[in-house]
């Protein structure tokens, strides 16, 4: 397997092939996060594409010191999606929304695509404790800082950290990673 640091370096030097590999690694994840925020298929596709074009155009601004490449692009995606929810267009279509949490999307998802873990994930989130659901929702899907999550859930930061660690631990053991 190619070293990811190398791939990112090539991407920063505007290597399209390297970027295609990174894109394939994270595209589904990014579109999932965007979908969880905007809850509109067409808009999700549009924003996801914009996110990857934006990341390409701002490639030089990424620095490993600031965090993971995935985290960087995840931030771009959440910001783009949240920007959209503040737009007029979104407010007009808001009545069509029916689900709030990633859990709902997963549970109501009818797509049985090639991702072998989708069915397992569905089962997993169904059995996931409410506290895990809300922590994961805020920290990973909504992009809350630990402080914001602590205020939102009325929990000390330390508790957020350890609870989140436990929830992700369950997820990892389920996925075997």
């Amino acid at each position: 397997m190619i070293n990811q640091d190398q791939l990112i370096l090539q991407f920063q030097q505007k290597d399209v092939k390297a970027y295609e590999k990174l894109y394939n690694m994270y595209c589904d994840s990014i579109s999932g996060v965007v979908n969880n925020i905007v809850k509109n298929d067409d808009v999700t596709q549009e924003i996801t594409q914009d996110v990857f074009i934006k990341a390409w155009n701002n490639a030089e601004s990424y620095s490993a010191k600031k965090g993971r490449f995935f985290t960087w692009i995840l931030n771009i995606a959440r910001n783009a999606a949240i920007d959209y929810t503040r737009s007029k267009k979104f407010k007009q279509s808001k009545q069509n929304l029916n689900s709030d949490f990633f859990v709902d999307i997963l549970e109501t998802s009818s797509s049985l695509d090639s991702t072998t873990n989708t069915i397992g994930l569905k089962k997993f989130v169904t059995n996931l404790g409410e506290k895990c659901k809300s922590v994961i929702e805020l920290i990973y899907f909504k992009g809350f800082t630990q402080k914001e999550a602590s205020e939102e859930l009325n929990m000390p930061i330390g508790t957020i950290k350890t609870r989140n660690r436990t929830c992700i631990g369950e997820l990892r053991s389920m996925l075997g990673v």
Binding site: D28, G32, N35, T115, N117, Y140, F141, L175, V177
Partner: peptide, 11 residues
């Protein structure tokens, strides 16, 4: 783990 979880929520 996070990439897989989030990817599962795509439509």
């Amino acid at each position: 783990a996070i990439v897989q979880l989030t990817a599962a929520t795509k439509k």
